[in-house]
């Protein structure tokens, strides 16, 4: 099994990983770094449970070949809370707005929402819906999820 060594920034820290070249970013995050916030749902880029932010853009980490991560900056759901464990405003809003049911989609939802708000702090509801359209919630709590994002967008938390 051919291995590849990659250096990149992970949640603000410089890291190196030596993993099989066939691994995805998702597998590397989960198996090598033991960061299990990003989930594998479908494995083909449809469900969005594996969403992380690479250089500011939300991407499906399940489809991201690990060699491509060289030199890039990755943020996962583990990297967005404050140092002392203070929750990110989106995490707080999801809790307070009952936007979490089984929780499997939550980290992906939060990362897609964060990628949106980082670029557009005051999005229209349509922008929120578009940004979350690649994140499936099978408990169907979409209304609460969109509402949670909207609260943070408005700075109402």
């Amino acid at each position: 099994m051919k291995k590849v060594s990659v250096c990149f920034t992970l949640n603000g820290d410089s890291v190196t990983a030596e993993v099989p070249v066939t691994w995805s970013l998702l597998k590397t995050l989960r198996e090598y770094f033991e960061l299990t916030g990003a989930k594998e749902g479908c494995g083909v880029g449809e469900c969005g449970c594996c969403t992380v932010i690479v250089d500011g853009d939300a991407v499906n980490s399940c489809l991201y070949p690990i060699p491509e991560i060289e030199g890039r900056s990755v943020v996962t759901v583990e990297g967005i809370a404050g140092k002392e464990g203070t929750l990110h405003p989106l995490q707080k809003a999801f809790l307070e707005n009952n936007a979490v049911q089984c929780g499997f989609c939550t980290s992906g939802m939060i990362m897609s929402a964060k990628a949106l708000l980082d670029k557009n702090p005051d999005p229209a509801e349509e922008d929120i819906r578009t940004s979350l359209s690649g994140n499936f919630c099978r408990c169907t709590g979409y209304v609460q999820i969109i509402e949670a994002v909207r609260r943070v967008a408005k700075g109402n938390t």
């Binding site: 880029g45 449809e46 969005g48 969403t51 853009d57 939300a58 991407v59 499906n60 489809l63 991201y64 897609s112 990628a115 949106l116 578009t130 940004s131 359209s133 690649g134 994140n135």
Partner: peptide
Amino acid sequence: VGSVQIRNV
């Protein structure tokens, strides 16, 4: 095309 995540790459 696809979702924002797909369109980004």
